[in-house]
Simulated scan of single mutants.
Amino acid sequence: MQRRQFIGLIGSAAAWSRSARAQQPAGRAWRIGFLGYTPPTPAMVSALRDGLRERGYRDGQNLSIEVRSLLDQNPDVATELVRSGVDLIVAWTTLAAIAASRATATIPIVMVSVADPVGSGVVPELARPGGNITGVSNMAPELSAKIVQLLIEIVPGLKRVGVVRNPNNPSNIASLRETVEAISAFGLQLEVADAEGAEDFENAFARLSAQGVQGVVLLSDPAPLKHRERIAELAQKTHLPTVFQRRENVQAGGLLSYGSDLNDQVRQATFFVDRILKGARPSELPVEQPTKFVLAINLRTAKALGLEIPPTLLVRADELIE
């Protein structure tokens, strides 16, 4: 790719501030902070270790990874991660990237799965992000219309759609806007419910069910991933088909998902980690989009809901859970 060729050229630039420490003696051990809004899943942590191992970094030898969450019982977790002396922070989701950027303007930050990085204020532009942040977006707003279309395909006679958003996630602003536009374009009615905690989801599903929605779109956010088992139970209880952007939700019992592969995004982010530790400036590394998208369908859930998956959708699926 021409972009990566360009990145290779700037990799020989002067070292990035004190925190990049590219010109250190051989054999030094790098300390990476992995900060999520909710705790990164074990699979995500493994993806980070595996991706870095392929680039020559061995956990316990020349690498250590400190995993933290903004939902830890510590409001200053991002600041304390910075004070601990990490060389770089991998920030999963928009809220984690924002928290990390507020905590430091010098330590490099590699974002993972940030929707609308420009609109949410994480970077000023994608081609030259400036400052100390770069990484991988997740294209959640761009996929919103596709999610609505898939719900229409899978639910016959769909007329009324529920949408669940996290009102505290700034990236949901763009995702909700695109979702509303798609629902309107298809001539459907819309009901919006807010949810972040487990009790919020219970209230949201109860209200949407009472309002007669026939399917629910859950906007991309860490909260539906964290509460995926409970959301699957609520969907079964209210007999509501659910669509997501994370396959993990479908593996937990949700109906359908289409979106970027989260673990693959983490591995993709290790490209940036490696380049920065070798001296590249985050400000000059263009933000990349995800490269792998997955359509997953839970056939057990479809059967429980009395839905027959169209053959055209079955053949397009990357993962079928039976």
Rank of each mutant, 00 (worst) to 15 (best):
A223Q: 05
K292F: 01
G212L: 09
P222C: 12
R300D: 05
G259K: 05
V123W: 10
G187W: 03
Q245A: 09
A91P: 09
S257V: 06
S137K: 11
E142P: 02
F186W: 06
A174E: 13
E229F: 14
V266P: 05
E322L: 03
V161P: 03
S69Q: 04
T301P: 00
R28E: 15
E199S: 13
P222H: 09
D194V: 07
L262N: 07
A22Q: 08
T312A: 11
Q5H: 03
R31P: 00
Q2C: 06
Q289F: 02
V213G: 04
R83M: 12
A47P: 12
N62F: 12
Q251Y: 02
A127Y: 06
E125N: 14
P290S: 09
V118W: 00
Q73W: 00
S46L: 12
Q214M: 06
H227I: 02
I147L: 13
L256E: 08
V213W: 02
P141R: 02
A223H: 02
N263Q: 10
P129Y: 11
H239E: 14
G157K: 08
L234C: 01
V266R: 01
A206Q: 13
P124A: 15
Q5D: 11
A210H: 11
A193L: 12
M111A: 08
R316F: 03
F186S: 07
E196L: 03
A115E: 03
S137L: 09
A193K: 11
P170E: 08
R4D: 08
T238P: 07
S175W: 00
T38H: 07
G56P: 07
E284P: 01
L295W: 15
S69V: 00
Q265T: 05
E54S: 10
P167F: 08
A96M: 12
L255K: 12
N169I: 10
K292P: 00
L126D: 04
P311L: 06
L151E: 11
R18W: 10
Q61C: 03
L126I: 14
L88S: 08
I107D: 04
G51S: 05
L52S: 05
K303M: 08
M44E: 15
G51W: 06
A185C: 02
D194S: 10
V180K: 13
D116F: 02
A174Y: 07
P224H: 13
E66S: 08
A204F: 13
G212H: 02
A13E: 14
T238H: 15
A13F: 07
S46H: 10
Q61R: 13
